[in-house]
Design a protein around this nucleic acid. Structure first.
Lengths: 171, 171
DNA sequence: AGATTACGTCAGCGTTGTTGACATTGCCAG
DNA sequence: CTGGCAATGTCAACAACGCTGACGTAATCT
C-alpha cells in the first residue's frame, strides 16, 4: 500500500495517477493553506470586535437556522455545551444574540440574531463570500462542482448529514 | 452587491449561477465540515500520544523538507517563534525531531525527523491520506482538479507561493 | 567593532477546547 | 402526582496553542 499507484504497476490499466502519494500530499497541503485563507478575512474582523472563530461559527449557524435550539447548535458545532455556553453567553450579553424561551417546550431556548448581530454576520459573511466568489470565478463552474464533490466526500457521514440538512432547511 | 447574480439580471448573459449567494454559502459550509473530517483521523492518533495539531503540522513540514531551518518553518506555519518553540522543544525532548547545528551557518538549526519521528509521521500521513484517497476516488479525477484549483485560488498570495515552493523542492 | 540574524526562553495573557459536578426548570409517563 | 429524564446554565480546573514583550547568546556580516 501507499505505493502511490493503487497497487497497479506503472501505467497499469486506468493509470490512477490522481491517486498517487504526491497528488494526495498536494491535496493535504492545499487544504492546510486554503483553510488559512478561508478564515483570514473573518479573523481580522473578529479581532476588532474581540471575538474569535467560535463566535463566528455560532453567529453563522444561528443566522442560518434562526430559532435553532442550543442542543441543535451543539450537534452542528461538535463542541461541549460548556464551551458553547461561554461563547453564547457573551454574544447574548453583548446584545448580538437573543435566546427566547421555547413556545412549545419551555425548556428550550430559540436562538436568534438581533439587528446588531445581523450586522456583524453580514460583515463576516461578506468578507468570506468575497474570497470564495473570487476563487469560484477564477476556477470556473466545473472546478466548483469538483471542489464541492471532494469536500463532501471528505466529511464524516454525520457531518455530511448536517451539511445537507442545512440546505434543506433553506427551503 | 451580494445579490447573488453578479449584478446581472435573471439568466443574464452567461448566467453565473455558480456564484449565487446560495452556492457561496454551500462552499463555506462545505469547507467547515470537510476540514473537520480532514483533521479528525490525525487528531485521534495525536491524542494517544498527547500531541496536538501544532505538533502534526511541524512533523509534516519537517518531513516534507528535511533539514529545514526554524525560520523557514516559522514562515510556512505562520506562527510566532515562541509558539513553534514550545512545540519543537517537546518533539526534540521526546526524540522525534533532531536539530542539527547548521554546516555553513552555525546559527541555523537543521531540523530532521528521527526514526521514531518518521514512524509517527507515517501513521499520521497514512490516516490523512487514506481519507483523501477515498474522497478523491469517489469524486473522480476531474473533481480533484477542480478541488485543487478552487483551494489554490482561496489562498493568500504568500501562502500560494509556499504551497508551490514545497512541490518544487520535492523535485 | 558594531549591527544584524537565528535561535531560545521567561513571563503573562486570551480563546477555545476538555472533563466533572451540580442546579434548575419543565416535559412526560406511570 | 411523582419520579425520571431532557434541556439548559454554571462553577472549577485544566490543556493546547495562539499572542506580545523582553532578554540573552552565538554567529555572521558589513
Amino acid at each position: 500500500m501507499a505505493d502511490g499507484k493503487g497497487g497497479l504497476g506503472p501505467r497499469g490499466g486506468e493509470t490512477l495517477l490522481f491517486l498517487t502519494d504526491d497528488q494526495l500530499r498536494k491535496g493535504i497541503e492545499a487544504m492546510f493553506f486554503a483553510y488559512r485563507g478561508f478564515t483570514a478575512d473573518p479573523d481580522r474582523i473578529l479581532d476588532e470586535y474581540g471575538y474569535g472563530r467560535a463566535h463566528h461559527r455560532a453567529i453563522h449557524f444561528i443566522n442560518r437556522s434562526p430559532g435553532t435550539t442550543v442542543t441543535n447548535l451543539l450537534s452542528i458545532l461538535g463542541v461541549t455545551k460548556q464551551s458553547l455556553n461561554r461563547v453564547l453567553r457573551r454574544l447574548i450579553e453583548d446584545g448580538l444574540v437573543e435566546a427566547r424561551v421555547g413556545a412549545s417546550d419551555r425548556r428550550e431556548r430559540n436562538l436568534h440574531l438581533t439587528d446588531e448581530g445581523q450586522v456583524l454576520e453580514r460583515e463576516l459573511s461578506e468578507a468570506q463570500s468575497d474570497r470564495m466568489r473570487r476563487a469560484f470565478r477564477a476556477a470556473g463552474p466545473e472546478a466548483v462542482v469538483g471542489f464541492r464533490a471532494v469536500l463532501e466526500e471528505m466529511m464524516d457521514p454525520e457531518q455530511r448529514r448536517q451539511y445537507h440538512r442545512l440546505s434543506e432547511a433553506g427551503r
